[in-house]
Amino acid sequence: MITNIRRSIVTVLAFTVLFGFLYTFAGTGVAQAFFRGQANGSLTANGSRLIGQDWSKTPCPGHLPGSCVFQGRPDNLGPYSDIGRYKGDSPVGHPGDNPLVANGVAGGSGTTNLGPRSKELLAYTKELVAYWKARGVSPTPDLVTTSASGLDPDITPQDADAEIPMVSRATGISPARLRDLVNQQTQGRPLGFLGSPFVNVLQLNEALAKLRG
């Protein structure tokens, strides 16, 4: 018993140094030396390429806000932008029922956690369908459902296509040119078959901004 305790204490200290700190520090060293951009969060001047943003409030003179850009998953849109629903719940210590406080509030990642037969989910989805219909968009499933993190930076090419009428109307750019833009920005599946093809919304909008001059 005493031997076991003594051995355990020595082992705990040695393993904590080696497999906790040395492992992490060596990894951080390699990462910072060879993959600096990725290791620090894939940052651009406008945000992180990997962290989704709320585009729905982008000012678009003469049109509904957010209609002159491509929008991402509705992780912070409509019903889910109302962090007030969870007021009183600090995001700290309530991870289970984490609201979709991803952007704007430091340190949250979350999902709705609403089940497939939830009345609440049904109501929210209807609200989102109405949101898109008001912008002339016939929504795809991704555009009315939230992601696995509340931070999905991507949409599928079909989602982007569905948004083209809205963007075209608000920017005056022809649908054909927007379709070319989406095609240019579409990234294939890794190895040709893993996961789904996707369009990064931040990069798509940066390219759109260039197109508009």
Binding site: R73, T111, T112, N113, L114, P116, L121, T125, V129, P139, T140, P141, D142, V144, T145, T146, S147, A148, S149, D152, D154, I155, T156, Q158, D159, G195, S196, F198
Partner: peptide, 15 residues
């Protein structure tokens, strides 16, 4: 909303 890509609620688009 009709879906050909399954249940997308709570899933990332790139998976």
């Amino acid at each position: 909303v009709h879906s050909t890509v399954g249940n997308t609620e709570g899933k990332n688009s790139y998976f």
